[in-house]
Design a protein around this nucleic acid. Structure first.
Lengths: 204, 204
DNA sequence: TCATATACTAAACACTGTTCAGTAACTTAG
DNA sequence: CTAAGTTACTGAACAGTGTTTAGTATATGA
């Protein structure tokens, strides 16, 4: 039954084709301008076709989110080779922030928009999110274990750390840091300095 | 010329009526469900009428944002009576976070959405935002002056503080803290604890 | 070859922000 | 007091959105 297999392959290819188109459109045009019709036009299919592969827009956005998480988690995995948990923690923070600033639209999809999260009554858990946070939590725990972070609730420290970088990233993306009346580059340096300073007070 | 005056008054009343309706609708229905048509229905006027008072939806959202800022800045002003800058700083932080959690839709309009910020080529500066941050910055500066915060770049500390509470607030609003698999109340306590812990390491 | 299953789409529905021609009421001038 | 003019408002339309459905070709299996 080679035909059935080929059809299955075709189906998966089409699925991926849609996700890829949506992912690129998201990055290039921004999430506000990413429409089902636009994606359909990009892959040269009818808008209705997309609904043969995704229940609704939220489900498609969820798939795009997963794709974006692959990217971030890939960068995190590269840092796993760093033996010193303190150095690894620093790099994790800067990598996260850098990712958010370089991929603002994907970051928004991953950590701001509610749309992709609505698909999660089925997936039960937000696994990619759990995994990403896990990397941070684990590293902070290791820093505590070797006595480089003051003993305490590692989950709480991780939460604070995440909130800080997320706050910096989103306030920047949503143009709220324009109150400083500085250039983009100056603000970028301020954000990095803010993160550095936080690490310096956190790490013994 | 009492007529011209009355007409001017009517105009302002109508203006305010629209903003009030939009503000309530935002809080009650959420920003995704707040449409021009919905607001128009609420005040029992045609949708087109709104465009006699506001250039576009963004300009209306800007007005709603200003209204929400009045609320937050009002709460901040009450804290101005606190003499001790350290205590005032703590209360500022918790007041800010509490505001975000009690008024998630308004908070989103104030600090997340880009729509109301687009109206700002005219208003030049985001004055309400500048003022709000100013309260924080000033208080932190005073804490430094009396030696309760380690001398340094007060603007940077303020930025970090803002990013932290903003990060906590938005990650919660966007349901990302569901990774902790805790109840809303438990997460609320974690956020408060995170903020408290940060103050404890910041203040000498 | 013929019936069936598959992949796809055109067209419609209900919504959105926005514009514009037209109307009805109010104000002013003669 | 009437006629002209201004003002405040709206119905209807336009272009866009996500989504559904009936229908059409094409490919498959008997």
């Amino acid at each position: 039954m080679g035909i059935a297999e080929r059809k299955e392959r075709d189906k998966q290819e089409m699925h991926e084709k849609i996700v890829q188109a949506a992912t690129r459109m998201f990055a290039e045009e921004g999430y506000e301008k990413t429409s089902i019709r636009g994606i359909a036009e990009r892959i040269e299919y009818s808008p209705a076709t997309i609904y043969l592969y995704f229940k609704d827009k939220d489900e498609l956005l969820y798939a795009v989110q997963e794709e974006a998480f692959k990217n971030l988690l890939g960068q995190f995995k590269e840092l796993a080779t760093i033996q010193d948990p303190v150095e690894r923690l620093r790099r994790l923070g800067f990598t996260y922030l850098e990712f958010a600033l370089k991929n603002p639209e994907h970051y928004t999809l991953m950590f701001v928009l509610n749309s992709p999260m609505r698909t999660m009554e089925e997936h039960a858990k937000w696994q990619t999110g759990v995994d990403t946070f896990g990397v941070l939590h684990q590293t902070i725990q290791q820093c505590m274990d070797i006595g480089r972070i003051k003993p305490g609730n590692s989950e709480l420290i991780s939460m604070s750390m995440w909130a800080l970088v997320h706050g910096l990233a989103t306030l920047n993306i949503s143009c709220r840091f324009q109150i400083f009346q500085r250039t983009d580059e100056e603000i970028r340096l301020m954000m990095l300095e803010s993160l550095r300073h936080t690490f310096d007070t956190l790490i013994l």
